[in-house]
Design a protein around this nucleic acid. Sequence first.
DNA 1: GGAATAGTGTCTTTCAGACAATATGTT
DNA 2: AACATATTGTCTGAAAGACACTATTCC
Lengths: 241, 241
Amino acid sequence: MTDPLISPPAAERHRSADLPPLPVTVDTVIFTVLGEELRVLLVRRAESRFLGLWSLPGGFVRPEEALEAAALRELRDATGVTDVYLEQLYTFGDPDRDTRGRVISVAYVALLAADRCPLVPHELEAEAQWFSVYELPALAFDHPRMIQSGLERVRTKLEYTTIGLQLLPATFTLGELQRLYEIILDRRLDKRNFRRKLKLLELVEETGQKRSDGRGRPAALYRFRRIDFVQLRERGIHVPF
Amino acid sequence: MTDPLISPPAAERHRSADLPPLPVTVDTVIFTVLGEELRVLLVRRAESRFLGLWSLPGGFVRPEEALEAAALRELRDATGVTDVYLEQLYTFGDPDRDTRGRVISVAYVALLAADRCPLVPHELEAEAQWFSVYELPALAFDHPRMIQSGLERVRTKLEYTTIGLQLLPATFTLGELQRLYEIILDRRLDKRNFRRKLKLLELVEETGQKRSDGRGRPAALYRFRRIDFVQLRERGIHVPF
DNA sequence: GGAATAGTGTCTTTCAGACAATATGTT
DNA sequence: AACATATTGTCTGAAAGACACTATTCC
């Protein structure tokens, strides 16, 4: 049905080392849940060619820099945050994806708890903003695809990993945790079923304290249990951190 | 807790366009199930620096070539096969992953049905071979990691997608399909449970023919049903082709 | 007491896993 | 008849989904 094995001479197989190298960038889809909305950080492009368009924080990879290190550096430059959950998403390399010329972009997904989100000062609002994923402005390049792809990744992994825990402060109520899930998944969850599953997973434990926001019954505060990762994996739960 | 938003001047954010571009390659972990074993195709390196080492088929991406197109081209050059299931795996970019210097490698996973595998003629056995994933020779670069990573991807997706169907000929028996799964997952499956699930999924249908290999009761031949992908996705089954 | 939110238990259905006997072909 | 492989159904336990009432705090 197919040709027999064809093995070109090594000289031909590796002559390609002569081929010109390519510009490589990293772009990060960084999510947070802020104000009851799932948001993504966008920065304003200042290049004349894309003036007015927003884009994901990112930039070129330096010659001796690991990809993830480049993503972290760009994120630090854009937000001041250093300790962020980061996961490689996909590499976009279509020849015409960047109108400036051929650029390979390694996309990452990052998650940042709302209480660690840098507040955007008024004078910088024109430079960077947290946008609802449902109300995105005009975006440069193929960044809409990247965001879509990142969103799917986060939603999928939310259900079988513990990445959701990246998005909450050190202590939280079960109601807050459930709302987090509802906001990301964009659907309502049953309170009792949600809590039953949490109890089964044994991922969180009570701190013993309660929090009252002034109205209604105060809720118990929880924290994440520090569990042996190996043990979690054995229980079929993926732990990405 | 973290610094307020810091947004460097655009000039600084994009001055990195001055940074030297990087060599970008694609490498493909191509699997098949042949002779009751899960195998991966390796090619012999002829560069003096890595003489004697085997490596995954791959090569440099051309200036105007999409990443997937580059992977397909290298695969065609190495095997003669053109119509292959291909899926991006991960991008490896550590500065020291390639001893020749800094090279970014976009890794792909491919699946090829045994009846479409190019047979390796004797005079070429030194050039390319299908190796059992459990008996790999000395490999160049970080290719062991790539193979490991590809193996995990295939095993994971085998359970919730239809990629397994890529590895069988047009018609097959349920016994063959089950053996395929057992070989990839490296564990025994219960025959009745396996068939029950298959029936539930409605992915395959009888052709009406039977195949006898001379001993034992002849088995019914099946083929894949052509199902609406949308319909499958609604049933929670991922269809990667 | 009313408003608001937190907290809790049961029933039903579905799916996964364990398990063995019968059917159909060959020699 | 002996052999080899194909085909089929039941029981059990775990988890998911649907569903409503009581508890605590603040005003």
